[in-house]
């Protein structure tokens, strides 16, 4: 069974291994090579899982557990490269990426959502159960949903307003405490605050002669 490490590494405290495969190294490999390498890595990962499990069973330390991460990272990189090639091929052939399409939809509660599309055996308009809430007298136009949306939007608006006020007050305090500070950095930190306006307020004036 190839589920175990080679005998030399049994009962070792330190097993020396190299690094994982990098993206750029995998990009210059052919598809066949990547396919073969995938199975090598898959077997390696199974082996490491087996050894780790056995070590835990026997209450021993698993030597160099970062090996699992290295293998996993290499596998992720292979997947990335294969995906890149797939996208390139599809764009050449069809002009689309060939990735799973994501659509902006309105959920049953009237909230905009991202929906990653999937295949169904029947088209959407034939799916009576799915269509029902979106009809004119459906759930999406009901009083309950409208009330929910009203309250939900109010809550969101209040959160925004409070954040705006909080930032504005904070900037005023900062200007009072550190009048010589870097205005560019402040602008970058709080892009939504009108700093010129904040400078002129009473709160921004310190216990000293005003500079501006």
């Amino acid at each position: 069974m190839e589920f175990f490490d080679i005998k030399k590494n049994w009962n070792e405290t330190n097993i020396k291994v190299g690094r994982g495969w990098k993206l750029d190294e995998l990009r210059i490999k052919s598809n066949t090579d990547l396919h073969k390498l995938w199975y090598v890595l898959l077997k390696e990962r199974n082996m490491l899982y087996t050894m780790e499990h056995e070590c835990n069973e026997q209450v021993k330390l698993f030597p160099n557990p970062e090996r699992i991460d290295k293998v996993q990272e290499s596998m992720n990189n292979i997947e990335t490269v294969v995906r890149e090639r797939n996208v390139a091929y599809y764009q050449l052939e069809t002009g689309e990426t060939g990735e799973r399409p994501i659509e902006d939809v309105v959920s049953i509660f009237g909230i905009p959502e991202k929906y990653s599309k999937k295949e169904y055996s029947i088209p959407a308009f034939m799916n009576k159960r799915w269509v029902r809430p979106y009809l004119e007298n459906g759930y999406i136009n009901s009083r309950a949903v409208k009330k929910f949306l009203r309250l939900y939007n109010e809550k969101k608006h209040n959160e925004e307003r409070k954040a705006r006020n909080r930032d504005y007050n904070h900037v005023q305090q900062l200007l009072k405490r550190f009048p010589d500070m870097d205005m560019e950095a402040l602008k970058a930190e709080y892009p939504n605050v009108d700093i010129e306006k904040a400078k002129r307020t009473k709160k921004a004036r310190g216990h000293c002669l005003p500079k501006y």
């Binding site: 589920f3 199974n46 087996t50 499990h53 069973e57 596998m75 799973r100 295949e119 055996s121």
Partner: peptide, 27 residues
């Protein structure tokens, strides 16, 4: 991974990069 649904007459599903794991454990 995510695959297209199978309908009768479709070609057989081919898996090129299986990502399942298995580990051998002591019975």
């Amino acid at each position: 991974r995510w695959y297209p649904i199978y309908q009768r007459g479709n070609p057989q599903l081919r898996v090129f990069l299986p990502n399942f794991w298995m580990k051998l454990v002591r019975p």
